[in-house]
């Protein structure tokens, strides 16, 4: 049985690492992994983010089934990785050292 909704099997290799529970954890993940892992996740997600959002569209978050919830977690990890890969680029490691000081308050972040 697939862990992600139909059509998103290509993301399965990333589901373990990139499904963090909240924004603080996702930001920490961006910092913790290496450049190659960010690049690989970014490449796999890039063309699937919009289809994923469309697949999840219109459903209240608490009505998502486990597979959809997992897909949402990957979708929410994407902005972090996209900023790293598409905007910060080669400056990402240096930027991470500055960003670390901006501590996201976990319990009041929007629920994933």
């Amino acid at each position: 049985m697939s862990v992600l909704p139909d059509g998103f099997a290509a993301l399965e290799p990333f589901a373990g690492l990139w499904s963090a529970p909240d924004m603080a954890a996702r930001a920490a993940l961006r910092d913790a992994v290496g450049d190659a892992e960010r690049q690989a996740f970014h490449a796999a997600m890039k063309s699937l983010v919009r289809p994923a959002l469309e697949r999840l569209d219109g459903k209240p978050l608490d009505a998502l089934d486990p597979a959809e919830r997992l897909l949402l977690a990957l979708v929410l990890a994407y902005p972090h990785v996209a900023m790293a890969v598409e905007v910060q680029g080669g400056a990402e490691v240096r930027h991470a050292a500055l960003r670390r000081h901006m501590r996201i308050t976990p319990e009041i972040s929007p629920p994933a």
Binding site: L53, K59, L61, P79
Partner: peptide
Amino acid sequence: ADAWAAFSRE
């Protein structure tokens, strides 16, 4: 309310 909202906020 939904995935688009969560994604856009993030």
